Computed example of a mutant assay.
Amino acid sequence: MVIVSAHNTSQDCSNCGGKVPKKLHIRWHDCPHCGCSLDRDHNAAINIKNRAVGHSVLKAKSLLSNSRIVLEAYTVCESSV
């Protein structure tokens, strides 16, 4: 397991690395720098995955164009029942 800081992962564009500030209620990532448009959580997941393997956005972008990467997201809920 690799521990990664999630700080700014939904604010940083996973395509170009540009900062795209947004309030928490904004659930869609639209980058004015490169035109990347995807769900905010998907954008964050890509950034977290790239941080976990130690790649910058630009290096990860070149790797993405050369291979197929599958991202999986899991939600864990605890019940007090």
Rank of each mutant, 00 (worst) to 15 (best):
34 C>V: 14
38 L>Y: 00
78 E>T: 10
19 K>D: 05
77 C>W: 03
41 D>N: 15
65 S>L: 14
16 C>V: 10
59 K>F: 02
47 N>I: 14
4 V>P: 07
70 V>K: 15
78 E>G: 10
1 M>H: 06
78 E>C: 07
55 H>C: 08
55 H>K: 12
25 H>K: 13
70 V>W: 04
56 S>N: 04
47 N>W: 05
62 S>E: 14
61 K>N: 10
29 H>M: 12
49 K>D: 01
50 N>A: 13
21 P>V: 13
57 V>W: 02
25 H>S: 12
42 H>W: 03
76 V>A: 08
54 G>Y: 05
60 A>V: 03
1 M>T: 13
62 S>Y: 06
76 V>E: 13
23 K>T: 09
66 N>S: 09
71 L>D: 04
58 L>N: 09
37 S>Q: 06
68 R>M: 07
14 S>D: 02
51 R>G: 11
80 S>V: 04
2 V>C: 04
32 P>Y: 09
34 C>Y: 06
64 L>G: 01
77 C>F: 10
73 A>N: 08
45 A>T: 11
25 H>Q: 11
4 V>H: 06
10 S>A: 14
64 L>Q: 11
80 S>Y: 03
25 H>N: 10
21 P>T: 10
43 N>S: 05
47 N>L: 07
81 V>E: 06
73 A>D: 00
13 C>I: 09
32 P>C: 14
51 R>C: 12
20 V>Y: 00
32 P>K: 15
56 S>W: 02
7 H>M: 03
6 A>W: 00
72 E>K: 14
73 A>G: 11
18 G>Y: 15
31 C>A: 06
70 V>M: 09
56 S>E: 01
46 I>R: 03
38 L>G: 02
60 A>P: 05
62 S>K: 12
34 C>M: 07
6 A>T: 13
5 S>L: 05
45 A>N: 04
3 I>L: 11
53 V>N: 03
33 H>G: 02
55 H>F: 08
76 V>S: 05
44 A>V: 08
61 K>V: 06
66 N>T: 13
28 W>C: 02
41 D>H: 14
47 N>P: 10
74 Y>I: 08
41 D>A: 10
40 R>W: 01
31 C>R: 14
27 R>Y: 01
50 N>P: 01
67 S>V: 13
39 D>R: 15
17 G>I: 10
44 A>W: 09
8 N>I: 06
42 H>R: 15
29 H>E: 00
33 H>Y: 14
37 S>I: 02
65 S>F: 06
7 H>D: 07
2 V>G: 00
57 V>F: 02
11 Q>G: 03
54 G>E: 01
78 E>V: 13
44 A>S: 12
15 N>Y: 15
39 D>K: 15
29 H>W: 01
60 A>W: 11
40 R>G: 03
24 L>Y: 03
74 Y>N: 05
66 N>E: 11
41 D>G: 10
59 K>R: 08
65 S>M: 13
25 H>M: 05
38 L>C: 06
54 G>V: 06
33 H>Q: 07
25 H>I: 13
57 V>P: 02
53 V>D: 05
66 N>A: 12
64 L>T: 05
27 R>N: 01
70 V>I: 15
57 V>A: 07
47 N>R: 09
43 N>W: 01
